[in-house]
Each structure stands twice: as structure tokens, then as C-alpha cells.
């Protein structure tokens, strides 16, 4: 068994700054997206600048910075990249891609007020989240180490809020958000969270709806209550 000191080893590797390499690649990705999106726009002249000129110039600048960062990753030492930091983003990006693919296969028309792709995404997300919640009970350390726990439940809570705020009202969507996102913290105690979720929701309904008079529905039960 050879002795492996971590530092010197990394500086002799081909990629000495993985974080900068990843950062550069992400910038190049953004630039690529923007380049595609701005393809049909007219550039115009300096006198009469077209709508496409500034986005194109900015895209090129962004790409230049991306290349610079990639290049610097080979030249100088830097921080490592941990998969756990990005696992949730990658997972959700995969879900979006899957939903977009499935959405284009499904017949058009809205499903419960959502475009098909968005509906599929919500469905997939819910399945994944519940699966993780079950895992959470069994092997919570794995969930924490994977880095999935925080983002998946926080984003899940927010999506649940967005889906229900208009159709069911704050009194439903508020606790839903608090309870789902609450699962994101490893030291959550369920009983405490329930009490807190209800209290926070009531407080916010009072503040937003009655003190500030914002037109946010508090509770909707179709045909019976509209608050």
C-alpha cells in the first residue's frame, strides 16, 4: 500500500482545479443555450441595433469566460467538486428532460390546468420524493450523504404550494409547504413541525390577507367556501 498525500497528487493530475473546470463547462452550457435561443433574432447595425445583437455579444463574452475558466483549471490548483453538491440538480434536470420527452408523446391539451409535460413532471417528482421519503425512514444517513435530502424536499414543498395555492387556498398550501420542506432537515421533529406549520400559516393568512389586503385566496372548497 502506497502512501497518498492528497495535495501534491492533485496538482500533478491533468485537471488541477475541478471546480473551475465544472464552472467553465456550466458557463459554456449557458452560452450554448443562449446561442440557440437567440438564433432567429436580427443583429442589425450599430445605428439601428437589432434585438439579437446584445444577446449574441453577451453570449460570446460568457463563452469566453467559460473557456478561460476551463483553461485555468489545467494551469492552477483549486477546489475539488463533490457529486453530492450537484446530485439534486442533476436528478431534477433528468426529471425535467424525461417529462419533456413524455409530454411531447402525450396528446395535447391541458391536464388539470397544466400542460402535459408539466403534469408529467409533477407526477414524476412526487413519485421520486415519496420514494426518497421512504428511504429516509430506512436509511436516512444515505439520504443525507447523497445531498438529495435538502433540495428535493424544499423544491417539492414549493411545487406543492404552487399547485394548491390557487385551487385550495393558503390554509391548505401553507401547511403543505411547511410539512414537506420540513422533511429537508435531518433533525426535524414531526409533532413540533405540525404545530409550527399551522401557526405560521394562520399568522401569514392574517398578515397577507387581512392586514395587507392582498388578493390571496385563504381557503377554497369548490361550491362551498370561497375565502
Amino acid at each position: 500500500m502506497t502512501h497518498r498525500p492528497p495535495r501534491p497528487r492533485s496538482s500533478r493530475a491533468a485537471v488541477r482545479d475541478p471546480q473551475n473546470l465544472a464552472a467553465g463547462l456550466v458557463l459554456l452550457g449557458f452560452a450554448g443555450l443562449a446561442w440557440i435561443a437567440s438564433a432567429g433574432l436580427e443583429m442589425g447595425t450599430l445605428f439601428v441595433m437589432g434585438p439579437g445583437l446584445v444577446p449574441r455579444v453577451l453570449t460570446l463574452c460568457l463563452a469566453a469566460f467559460g473557456l478561460f475558466l476551463c483553461a485555468s483549471a489545467v494551469v492552477q490548483d483549486g477546489m475539488p467538486v463533490r457529486l453530492a453538491d450537484f446530485s439534486a440538480v442533476l436528478l431534477i434536470a433528468a426529471l425535467i428532460a424525461a417529462a419533456a420527452a413524455a409530454g411531447s408523446l402525450l396528446p395535447g391539451g391541458a391536464v388539470i390546468g397544466l400542460p402535459p409535460a408539466a403534469f408529467v413532471f409533477c407526477l414524476l417528482y412526487l413519485v421520486v420524493m415519496v420514494a426518497l421519503a421512504v428511504l429516509c425512514v430506512r436509511r436516512s444517513t444515505w439520504l443525507d450523504r447523497s445531498g438529495l435530502r435538502g433540495p428535493v424536499f424544499v423544491i417539492g414543498g414549493v411545487i406543492a404550494f404552487a399547485l394548491t395555492v390557487r385551487s385550495a387556498g393558503l390554509l391548505v398550501s401553507g401547511p403543505l409547504l411547511a410539512l414537506i420542506s420540513g422533511a429537508a432537515a435531518p433533525d426535524t421533529r414531526f409533532g413540533e413541525l405540525v404545530v409550527f406549520a399551522i401557526a405560521v400559516t394562520l399568522l401569514s393568512v392574517g398578515l397577507f390577507k387581512y392586514v395587507l389586503q392582498l388578493p390571496v385566496p385563504a381557503l377554497i372548497i369548490p361550491g362551498i367556501v370561497y375565502l
Binding site: 414549493v158 395555492v165 410539512l179 420542506s181 420540513g182 429537508a184 401569514s204
Partner: peptide, 12 residues
């Protein structure tokens, strides 16, 4: 563990 759900509810 209680503060962040509160932040999220108010922000949303």
C-alpha cells in the same frame, strides 16, 4: 429546522 419552513412559507 423550524426557521427555514417559515422563511419558505412567507417567501412563497
Amino acid at each position: 429546522r423550524l426557521l427555514f419552513p417559515t422563511i419558505l412559507v412567507f417567501s412563497c
